[in-house]
Design a protein around this nucleic acid. Structure first.
Length: 600
RNA sequence: GCGCCCGUAGCUCAGUUGGAUAGAGCAGCCGCCUUCUAAGCGGCAGGUCAGAGGUUCGAAUCCUCUCGGGCGCACCA
């Protein structure tokens, strides 16, 4: 058997899905029923209730309408054909027309072997067919250190990228540096103030409108040391560009360090400034112009609360309403410079021209009002060929023992990501960020995230992995190292694995690639965390069974054959847990120590 | 006023893209465990899926409206 060819595992699900499709084809050929066109899409999945069998399909129900027959009649026609399949031992028709299938138990045991053979690449899917997708995330302004809100976007984007890669997409991880806007001028002035301060100038209180954070102090100090007093008497126009450059470089270094501390990776850092200077905005606008999508006009005042300083003025507008937006959107400010929106259009135009028809942006929820216009622009600029997906991340409530967590002195106004990472560690932060779907608010209790209890999901999952490792360590006392490698365990006789719980464990492990595909299709990385929690719960359940009944322990002293089979199961579980933790970007822990266990 | 997100057990949340009797964990109640695999385990109870219509074989899931919460609404990013 060619094991290397199994890297993209032919899963049981796909196998049976194909068998069902073949049965449908045969039934129509025999004239049992007929319908127009292609097979409608149907699913083969584990039934909610395990008593219904190993797998269930809804094929009869989805065929009912096109074939014009009752679901159960169609099921009756397909049933004998499925019963002929070598791997299917039982076919039952149930409920409104479900077809429940029972498989030879060996099928699942063989899947356990496949897990051991594939290692952490188990679960890889070819769903994405190598399609290029660009995932842009974080994109925090280069004006200070990252805060926890940025951290959530960073984790969601990073894990989504890993997930899509595992699902067979060609993924580019990207960061968009907003280094061209007015906020960078503010940054430069704030640094200039710190520069003067470092040279002993009297600066007084930090004026309104400048960034007050302490993190700018060392930047000013470094400038004072390296460049001396030469800028002090110069007009702003002389020093501003220089200070902008230095300050944004320093802030990006700060941000990159924050990203590193969380193990968040990007392949491309795209600079807005560079894009503008190289004429990217002009090109994108010219393109829209050529399509007749730009005009000079005056917008209606916004509905509801009108800003105090609102006044009608002619602006350069993009016809966003043609693509489903509520109003047309300005591309130029009153001083003639481009709006953020204009350069953002140019940036997405650039991404499309680099070959990314599918773009995923991860944004904070406060940008929710921006989604429609950006999607309108992407549709316009790609002539409908490109697609922008935006995933919004809701806010995080930071708590410590149920109380709001106090703010960082360093940053002045917010809790920095680094504060949190220093407090609980990168892996805990990453995991906790995914314990809720990204479009729901998240309570993050720093104290609870470190507790070694059942209701701390990070601990619960890591403990399952550590227990796997612990069993294998214990096994090393009675087996040679050569007997305990994944390769060796893949060859052992698995027939002794027979309890329903054990088989269910394997079935759940075998659904890993389905979980990957479902999460990738939904673009919901949190599902991986929930999958892991489910696997951990099942594993701990097996362990507890061993507490109650010594014959159910993984290591049974007098039964080498049984023990080896169960060790293979443990190794498979550990493999899948590692594979899933790898998608989350978390290190699996070999053992967990606490006062309680250390004392024992 | 408009747009987006959300509303599921007392609490915190899942819910496999429309499937079977809606699931976990806490908290609650009832048992068991003075152990060497201990985050103790097992069980019970708990629901008008915010509400009302609609779509169909079938809705927590899709559509419309209502109620309630969050965020955002020219020239900022």
């Amino acid at each position: 058997m060619c094991r290397t060819g199994l890297k993209k595992t032919m899963t049981i699900y796909k196998n049976i899905h194909g068998a069902v499709a073949a049965a449908v084809a045969e039934a129509t050929k025999d004239g049992a029923f007929a319908f127009e066109g292609e097979n409608p899409s149907f699913v083969v999945e584990p039934p909610r209730d395990a008593a219904h069998g190993d797998l269930a399909t809804n094929i009869a129900m989805v065929l009912a309408k096109p074939a014009g027959k009752a679901p159960r009649a169609i099921a009756e026609a397909i049933k004998p054909l499925l019963e002929k399949h070598a791997d299917i031992t039982g076919v039952e028709i149930a409920g409104p027309g479900f077809i429940n299938l029972r498989l030879r138990p060996e099928i699942w045991l063989e899947e356990a072997r496949a897990i051991l053979a594939a290692g952490t690449s188990y679960g890889d899917s070819d769903l994405g067919k190598g399609i290029k997708v660009n995932v842009e995330y974080v994109s925090a302004n280069p004006t200070g250190p990252m805060h926890v809100g940025h951290g959530r976007g960073a984790v969601v984007g990073d894990v989504l990228a890993s997930l899509l890669a595992k699902a067979g997409y060609d993924v580019c991880r990207e960061y968009y540096i907003n280094d061209a806007g007015a906020q960078v001028d503010v940054l430069a002035r704030s640094v200039f103030l710190r520069y003067r301060e470092a040279l002993g100038e009297e600066t007084g209180a930090i004026p309104e409108g400048l960034y007050p954070g302490d993190y700018l102090v060392p930047v000013g100090k470094a400038l004072a040391e390296s460049e001396g007093r030469k800028w002090l008497d110069q007009p702003e126009s002389a020093w501003l560009p220089h200070f902008r450059k230095i300050a944004t470089d320093e802030m990006m270094a700060l941000i990159r360090a924050d990203l590193d501390s969380m193990n968040v990776k990007h392949a491309v850092f795209a600079s807005e400034k560079e894009l503008v200077e190289k004429g990217g905005v002009d090109r994108a606008v010219a393109f829209l112009q050529s399509k007749g999508l730009i005009y000079e006009g005056v917008l209606e005042p916004p509905k509801g609360k009108t800003p105090d300083d609102w006044e009608p003025r002619p602006q350069t507008l993009f016809r966003a309403t043609q693509f489903g937006d509520d109003t047309d959107r300005p591309l130029k400010k009153s001083d003639g410079s481009w709006t953020y929106f204009a350069s953002d259009i140019a940036y997405h135009y650039d991404k499309f021209k680099r070959g990314y028809g599918l773009m995923i942006d991860v944004w904070g929820a406060d940008h929710g009002g921006y989604v429609k216009r950006m999607q309108s622009a992407v549709t316009a600029v790609t002539e409908g060929k490109g697609r922008l997906v935006v995933r919004l991340c809701q806010m995080i409530n930071l708590l410590k023992d149920g109380q709001p967590f106090k703010m960082s002195k360093r940053a002045g106004t917010f809790v920095t990501l680094r504060d949190v990472v220093d407090e609980v560690g990168a892996d805990v932060v990453r995991f906790i960020m995914l314990t809720r779907k990204s479009d729901a608010q998240l309570d993050f209790d720093l104290a609870k995230s470190l507790e070694q209890t059942r209701d701390n999901p990070v601990f619960y999952v890591q403990y399952a992995h550590a227990r796997c490792c612990s069993v294998l360590r214990h096994a090393a006392e009675s087996f040679s190292p050569g007997e305990l490698t994944p390769e060796a365990l893949a060859e052992v006789d698995l027939a002794p694995i027979a309890t329903p719980d054990e088989l269910q464990m394997i079935k759940s492990l075998a659904s890993w690639s389905r979980a990957v595909e479902a999460a990738a299709l939904a673009e919901e990385p949190h599902r991986v965390a929930f999958y892991l929690m489910d696997i951990a719960a099942q594993f701990h359940g097996l362990w507890n069974k061993g507490n109650a009944d010594a014959s159910l322990r993984f290591i049974v002293p007098d039964d080498k054959r049984l023990t080896l089979a169960r060790l293979a199961l443990i190794m498979a579980a550990r493999t899948v847990i590692r594979s899933a933790l790898a998608v989350l970007g978390c290190q699996p822990m070999e053992e967990l120590r606490s006062e309680a266990t250390a004392a024992a």
